[in-house]
């Protein structure tokens, strides 16, 4: 392996005309994640999404912080900025402020987003900056060799927690909704088709399209999401949320969710067996309370676009509030003069 990750520069000015393919968005850099890492599948899904969106690579920017996920921008042939730990959200906000029309994607991990970068993520979400935010959640610090992360479950044994992780984990969905996030989706790394579908929805959303990707770290936390992703149990464990459709899961959609009004929770039942079909909840992505309840579920795990609502976008608000521009030299000279002058 060479000590240099090459980038072809300057990039070829024009690509083949559409339809584009995922390969059109692959950079020349050698991908350096561990063999079997879930990131490969995500990279492929993102490149496929960009192709389906016919994204202009010159108008697309990937930003990242630090961590395994943060190497992502090197592997996408767009503009890219690999920044510092936890701060990509802040830098991305500056990019959008300066050039609101750029298509910005932030790629981050659970430590980057929810530990060191938690404050920036909070403010990105409440401002509703118009970008796509991909959180690769593998419940572990991979690049620093396997320490417990803010999403590690209690009891997870790692080099930094030999007796098991002690503190309660952060749930990305609860965090996003609690911060006033306007879009929250969740998808496993192995669900290629659904990833593309969800990323396209996040991209179409005006505001922060936040996608939590359940990502497997094959080296330090292998099988973190296997109860969700295992083919044998997938039907029972995966609840795919689609706006306007019944919240059904299980083999052939035999099971469903209903509201337990007394307990203020969602509960699973089998229509026709222990309840009526009329009780089946229909997904309303625009309802933030339903989204919160869906995020609380563990068995089954809610996937897909869990929440999406319209709200004003930060940088548009910012630019709309800008006073009429007075950029001509005479206006600046007038400013320098001020209003209270005297002659000597």
């Amino acid at each position: 392996m060479s000590d240099t990750l090459d980038q072809a520069v300057p990039a070829a000015p024009e690509r083949s005309a559409s339809p584009r393919t995922a390969k059109d968005y692959a950079s020349d850099m050698e991908v350096r994640w561990c063999p079997g890492c879930g990131d490969y599948a995500i990279l492929k899904a993102v490149q496929k999404t960009l192709a389906e969106l016919e994204a202009d690579p010159d108008r697309t920017v990937f930003l990242s912080g630090i961590g395994c996920a943060a190497r992502f921008p090197y592997y996408v042939d767009t503009y890219g900025f690999h920044t510092i730990h936890g701060r990509a959200a802040a830098i991305a906000t500056g990019v959008k402020l300066a050039q609101p029309e750029l298509d910005v994607w932030v790629v981050s991990g659970d430590g980057d987003s929810l530990s060191i970068g938690g404050n920036h993520l909070l403010h990105l979400l409440r401002r509703n900056v118009d970008l796509v935010y991909l959180l690769f959640n593998n419940e572990v610090y991979g690049l620093t060799k396997g320490q417990a992360s803010p999403t590690s479950p209690v009891g997870q044994v790692t080099p930094s927690t030999p007796g098991g992780s002690l503190d309660a984990p952060v749930h990305a969905g609860r965090y996003v909704l609690g911060c006033g996030g306007t879009f929250f989706a969740r998808v496993p790394d192995v669900a290629q088709a659904q990833q593309v579908e969800v990323m396209k929805a996040a991209h179409a959303h005006a505001g922060t399209g936040f996608v939590e990707i359940l990502q497997n770290c094959i080296v330090y936390h292998d099988g973190a999401w296997s109860t969700v992703t295992d083919k044998k149990t997938a039907a029972e464990r995966q609840l795919w949320c689609r706006h306007g459709e019944p919240l059904r899961f299980g083999e052939g959609g035999a099971k469903a969710l209903r509201l337990n009004a007394a307990a203020l929770t969602l509960e699973a039942f089998t229509p026709g067996v222990d309840g009526e079909a009329a009780e089946v909840l229909v997904h309303d992505a625009g309802n933030p309370m339903l989204a919160r309840l869906l995020c609380e579920l563990d068995e089954p795990t809610a996937l897909g676009v869990i929440h999406r609502r319209d709200a004003a976008v930060s940088e548009r608000r910012h630019h709309a509030a800008r006073p009429p521009q007075r950029r001509e030299p005479a206006a600046l000279q007038e400013l320098l003069n001020g209003s209270d002058t005297w002659r000597i």
Binding site: A11, Y74, E101
Partner: peptide, 12 residues
């Protein structure tokens, strides 16, 4: 960022 034909990746 966004300059036509000159896309590249930078970082720390």
């Amino acid at each position: 960022a966004g300059t036509p034909g000159l896309r590249h990746r930078i970082g720390g």
